[in-house]
Design a binder for these strands. Structure first.
Length: 649
RNA sequence: GCUGCUGUAGCUCAGAGGUAGAGCACUCCCUUGGUAAGGGAGAGGUCGAGAGUUCAAUUCUCUCCAGCAGCACCA
């Protein structure tokens, strides 16, 4: 028997028979390691204990102490155990795929009857049975035809399709958890008893298309979460509860920021408090844009289809547009318009007024552009994904040579704003040409290269997002993460060679001839709606003082202090602080509670003592401790806090 | 848009084939109270919309609308 040499993490090497398995290696080290082993790293690859090793390699035996492989195996084996449980309870159910997710796994099933929440309990119980039975996990490599036939005979059409999709040169690996079989690339645990029966939970059922394709059958997805131990599971469930508390939809109600109603799905009714955040943010952005060399414009909401046909939106984007038909009295035909889903075509109209010179470029044209898009009903989500929203939009008309500089400038512009607003970290994603697109491949080549080169000049921390570009050009996305870890695209920068062409934008170059400008579409916050939603969740409602709609509530302890309360409120207002009086006939406990729930950052309590001493007692949100301060001193301090970050010295 | 679930007072929710209930919020009264809910009284609902079954529907059935979770979509 040929020998191979395996090198252990401590640097020692040992000879083994060729074809030795990690299980045998582990057992040769010690009996207990043989039992505790869950998998191995062989030359850095996650390796099943049963897979033979055919050549010299480095090896490390994994146990449950090794977090990454342990979690991967637990979640992956849970998927199989769950699928087995489901097929044992409902044998007619067909299995498909069951991958590991960020905190657990899911498995997609095809079954006539929908799974109910009660079914989940039954599945969980069956899973625990399977785990407690400590069923061995075994694996074999099969010939393609044999596997194919096996699944055909077993009435598993989805598995047949999966077998067919496995590339020619890849092995077709079969796994068994006890008597239950699945096609799987592995690796897996030694036996089901290695799964922690008390550290998993089924989270729900939902629909999911087979292979993510709308035209394929809708399957039932059962998802779960799993960890190494009960404590980690509890911690995660606790995190979900905390995340639910920061949900902007809930806080929006508690803080009286906005509401939404049936008659206007996907559109926001901003209340005074919410609108205060909005306008404060808008004022800030307006100042930033002025500093950044932008000119601000405003364009129509309802625009004739002719312009959308010319821009390409009518063809590529019509399904997402609100169409407005108007019966004009003396017209032969109805006039057909659309609410603008984007501002770009209108901005080109402004650009096209009068002749532009190369000296006018780059021309940075900004608009707080109110847009309406008919988003699919299932996509709507609070104020984060809506049908009516306002972008902090701008289009930079420039030459191809100016793309790099303008890109770098914009990334710097955005970084400064995100920092001011409390988001020092964010992801940058680069999306290239999608399947449905306008413009030639040659133009796309140039646009993609220009954008990527300019981005790389600023940062190398760019994720690739193949095929996700806009129909007219590649884009950069600046992505923030919400309270429960979902990513939201906020900022964007898109290079566009197509629209200037379609809408015939030109400028006169140095040579006296007409040339095509390039357009850079860009937004920093993205939309005010989404950005405010993220702000609320990020801060759990406790917004930075300068953004808080109600910055201070001055609460009387006894009605004899009412007069002084108004004096304090007026002093604060004069200092530029948003202050309100609360002189209701309620106890101070009650007032403190109510305004704390409402996330007012500063509560000032005044009673006899304060009236006499011309002081206030300060209670900051989330702090138990109070502080007695002279009114003048505090007003000056709060005035500074109330100043937007760009206006402080 | 698709699958599943949900829709009862401003909010959170209970309820049943015989035309509705709680807590909080709201209004009024008492209380002037020192840092997360003082006490009492009162008012408030076409039970998401429409159709059907039934002597009778908010309850059962269907259609539509909206919301929630996920999928798909996201310029």
């Amino acid at each position: 028997m040929a020998q191979i040499s395996l090198t252990f993490p401590d640097g020692n090497a040992r000879e083994f028979d060729k074809g030795v398995t990690p299980a045998e290696v582990a057992a040769s080290i010690s009996k207990s390691l043989g039992k505790k082993a869950i998998s191995a790293m062989v030359d850095g690859q996650h390796w099943d204990l049963q897979w033979p090793i055919e050549a010299d390699a480095s090896i490390a035996i994994n146990t449950m102490q090794d977090e990454a492989p342990a979690l991967e195996l637990i979640r992956h084996d849970m998927a199989h155990v769950m699928a087995r449980a489901v097929q044992e309870i409902w044998p007619a159910t067909k299995v498909t795929i069951g991958p590991v997710t960020e905190h657990g796994w899911f498995y997609d099933f095809d079954r006539e009857e929908p799974f109910t929440p009660e079914d989940l309990g039954q599945i969980e119980a069956k899973m625990k049975e399977i785990i407690n039975a400590r069923e061995p996990v075994t694996t074999e490599i099969w010939e393609r035809e044999r596997a194919r036939k096996f699944y055909e005979e077993n009435g598993e059409p989805y598995k047949v399709e999966l077998v067919d999709r496995i590339p020619e040169d890849a092995a077709i690996r079969m796994y068994w958890h006890g008597g239950w079989q699945d096609l799987c690339r592995g690796p897996h645990l030694q036996h089901t008893g290695q799964l922690p029966a008390d550290a998993f939970k089924l989270m729900g059922v939902s629909g999911a298309y087979w292979f993510g394709d709308v035209n394929r059958p809708m399957l039932q997805r059962v998802s779960g979460v799993a960890f190494r131990n009960r404590d980690d599971l509890k911690k995660y469930l606790n995190f979900l509860e905390e995340a639910a508390k920061r949900d902007h939809r809930k806080l929006g109600r508690e803080m009286d920021l906005f509401h939404m109603q049936e008659e206007a799905p996907g559109q926001v009714f901003w209340h005074p408090n919410g609108w205060s955040i909005y306008t404060t943010l808008q004022d800030y952005m307006r100042r930033q844009q002025q500093r950044g060399g932008y000119v601000e414009v405003n364009t129509p909401q309802v625009v004739d289809r002719k312009l959308w046909e010319a821009s390409g939106h009518w063809e590529k984007y019509q399904d997402n547009m609100f169409i407005v038909e108007v019966d004009e009295e003396h017209a032969r035909e109805k006039s057909v318009n659309a609410l603008k889903p984007m501002n770009c075509p209108c901005h080109v109209q402004i650009f096209n007024q009068g002749l532009k010179s190369y000296r006018d470029l780059p021309l940075r044209m900004a608009e707080f552009g109110s847009c309406n898009r008919y988003e699919p009903s299932g996509a709507l989500h609070g104020i984060m994904r809506v049908r009516g929203f306002t972008q902090d939009d701008a289009h930079i008309f420039c030459t191809e040579e100016q793309i790099a500089e303008e890109t770098e400038k914009f990334i710097g512009f955005l970084a400064g704003i995100y920092r001011d607003l409390g988001f020092p970290t964010y992801k940058i994603k680069f999306s290239d040409r999608p399947d449905t697109r306008a413009g030639s491949d040659e133009v796309w080549d140039r646009a993609e290269k220009a954008l990527m080169d300019a981005t790389r000049a600023v940062t190398n921390d760019v994720e690739l997002n193949p095929g996700e570009g806009a129909f007219y050009g590649p884009k950069l996305e600046f992505v923030l993460t919400d309270a429960i870890g979902r990513d939201w695209q906020c900022g964007t920068l898109q290079v566009d060679f197509v629209l200037p062409e379609r809408l015939d934008a030109t400028y006169i170059g140095k040579d006296g001839d007409k040339h095509r400008p390039v357009m850079l579409h860009r937004a920093t916050l993205g939309s005010f709606e989404r950005f405010i939603g993220i702000l609320i969740e990020e801060h759990a409602g406790k917004l930075p003082f300068w953004l808080a709609p109600r910055q201070v509530v001055v609460a009387s302890i006894t009605s004899e202090a009412d007069e002084y309360v108004y004096e304090v409120v007026n002093a604060l207002k004069a200092a530029g602080v948003r202050a309100e009086a609360d002189t209701r006939n309620e106890k101070i406990n009650y007032k403190v509670r109510e305004h704390s729930v409402g996330k007012v950052p500063v509560i000032l309590a005044v009673g006899h003592r304060e009236v006499e001493e011309r002081t206030v007692t300060v209670r900051r949100l989330g702090e138990k401790q109070t502080q007695v301060r002279p009114l003048d001193e505090l007003a000056a301090e709060l005035a500074l806090d109330a100043t937007p970050p760009d206006l402080r010295d």
